[in-house]
Design a protein around this nucleic acid. Structure first.
Length: 502
RNA sequence: GGCGACGUGGCCAAGCGGUAAGGCAGAGGCCUGCAAAGCCUUUAUCCCCGGUUCGAUUCCGGGCGUCGCCUCCA
């Protein structure tokens, strides 16, 4: 398995510190607002990485924090005239709900900054003791120049940065590059008691403390969006490595930005779409498919057109699964044996036999190469075409004998898609009540059950078609279409797919 | 200005030394009462210019263009 490591700017063989386990940390949200779809992309990327590592047999410890103390939270609380903890609680809950809706697995540990204050204070004390930090007017700063490796992650030279850094009048820093570990509290701000007076931790510190706290020194993977490389991750490294003297994280993985009109989506630019709103229009599997068709490190442009295209490709998979299942189940019911009736059919059958193992191998090959989800999806679509071609070849009613083969390939496809967190709803109903009226009108249905109504409509359409009463047959189909149903005539008879009203 | 990434068919996107996966869209054909779904066929001087190589989309240099970080940001 090879992964791109920002630290070395190259793809490296991935060797976790323990052969059978992976310790990974991903920077979680600062809970001052709903997360937008760009934030979601990063969480999704690392969710897939985590799922893949688990699928490959690693015991994954996945830590993702909640930063619930920060200037932005305080500002937001002021705006909304509530307390900072109320803001944090509100958006933490919203974050959890959104992650669940997106199908992002819950982390193994989810530490909160406000519950780690003691540990942070302890780290600051150690850093002061070692000469890497100093107190100044109630604040504590990290002395960037006291740490040799500063800039190694982002490829910066401390002296180059100096010219660009601004020095504010009355700054308490000794060096403009120094960053705050502890900020003294201003009136009305939340605070904790510390050896340097009442205050709160600076950004960056919580991640160093919480990651090493749960995963130990020199854990395997540290992830986040590329925009966190500097200064956030650079500072995390400085704090943690100055403290422990050991390497902080071994592989630094960074996700590319989600863009809109080729421009980074961000809250400060105001060009963002909230995840919860996007999920209101496009279900989680669609959003995942849309995002995973691009490599996680590449920029990805958001557009509704592309989401709509993802709907079509999702339906392509869904249809293949449904068709294969229908044939496999019908065949199993027949119980009769069958032999290939043509050369094409038998060569396709051979390909089908090899398909599950072949797909798995190619999927692994793609994912082992820095989590190439786009390549992995191509493998799935290849299986889709294989299955469809086969179904096309064997034609109607002759699936017998191929039932197990079809089931095996479908199971494999679904298994691979599950690694990407892309799932399919099973046997949902939720038909609109209007079908009952439609059935009363067109099929003489007298009951009140939506499923029965649909069955009655299909039965009346089948009868109409036998009588070549195309007018009635089409009226039924059009009526159902108006309610969000697609009618498909298959070898096993007519079938209805509910796509919802739109 | 400093650091970094990227530029592949109509749109999106893998591949990264032996002339190009996949998705969406388009065209033609098959199937269908008509559809839907599906199958088959079909669409690429891989941004430009040099260089290395038997051979480059793939490596190196230069150019042009787009984007990110350098301030809060996933």
């Amino acid at each position: 398995m090879r992964v791109y490591n920002t630290l070395t700017r190259s793809k490296e063989e991935f060797v976790p510190r323990r052969a059978d386990a992976v310790a990974m940390y991903v920077c979680g949200p600062t809970v001052y607002n709903h997360i937008h779809i760009g934030n979601a992309r990063t969480f999704l990327s690392f969710d897939v990485i985590r799922r893949y590592l688990e699928w490959r047999g690693f015991d994954v410890s996945f830590v993702r924090n909640i930063t619930d103390v920060d200037d932005k939270i305080i500002n937001r609380a002021r705006e909304e005239q509530v307390t900072a903890p109320e803001i944090a609680a509100k958006y933490t809950a919203a974050f959890h709900e959104a992650m669940e809706r997106l199908g992002v697995k819950a982390p193994t540990y989810e530490p909160y900054a406000t519950q780690t204050i003691d540990e942070m204070i302890e780290m600051i004390e150690r850093l002061i003791e070692k000469g890497n930090a100093y107190e100044s007017g109630g604040d504590v700063y990290f002395a960037v120049r006291s740490f040799d490796g500063y800039g190694k992650l982002s490829g910066r030279d401390v002296d180059d940065m100096r010219s660009g850094a601004r020095i504010e009048v009355g700054d308490l820093k000794r060096d403009p590059l120094d960053f705050a570990l502890w900020k003294s509290a201003k009136p009305g701000e939340p605070f904790w008691t510390s050896p340097w007076g009442d205050g709160r931790p600076g950004w960056h510190l919580e991640c160093s403390v919480m990651s090493t706290g749960h995963l130990g020194e020199t854990f395997d993977i540290h992830g986040g969006g590329v925009d966190l490389v500097f200064p956030h991750h650079e500072n995390e490294i400085a704090q943690a490595e100055a403290d422990t003297g050991a390497p902080f994280a071994r592989y630094w993985l960074h996700g590319g930005m989600l863009q809109i009109n080729s421009e980074k989506m961000s809250k400060s630019l105001g060009n963002f779409m909230l995840l919860k709103d996007v999920l209101g229009t496009f279900p989680a599997p669609i959003v995942r498919l849309f995002m995973l068709q691009t490599h996680y490190r590449s920029p990805l442009d958001y557009s509704e057109e592309r989401l709509a295209a993802a709907v079509k490709s999702y339906e392509r998979i869904e249809t293949a699964v449904r068709n294969a299942r229908a044939v496999a189940e019908g065949a199993a019911a027949d119980g009769a044996g069958a032999s290939a009736s043509s050369a094409d059919e038998s060569s396709l059958a051979e390909a089908l036999v090899a398909a599950p193992e072949d797909a798995r191998a190619r999927f692994i090959e793609a994912m082992d190469d820095d989590f190439n989800t786009a390549g992995a999806l191509a493998v799935v679509f290849d299986q889709v075409r294989l299955v469809n071609s086969f179904l096309d070849q064997i034609g109607s009613g002759r699936g017998a004998g191929y039932s197990d083969l079809l089931k095996a390939i479908i199971d494999t496809m679904l298994d691979l898609l599950r690694v990407l967190g892309i799932t399919f709803a099973e046997g949902e109903d939720g038909y609109p009540v209007e079908v009952v009226d439609l059935a009363a009108q067109l099929a003489g249905y007298g009951g009140g059950d939506t499923r029965e109504a649909v069955d009655a409509l299909l039965a009346s359409r089948a009868a109409a078609r036998t009588d070549k009463n195309w007018g009635l047959a089409d009226a039924v189909r059009d009526g159902l279409a108006g309610l969000g149903f697609v009618v498909e005539d298959t070898a096993q008879g007519a079938r209805v797919i509910y796509r919802g009203q739109s």
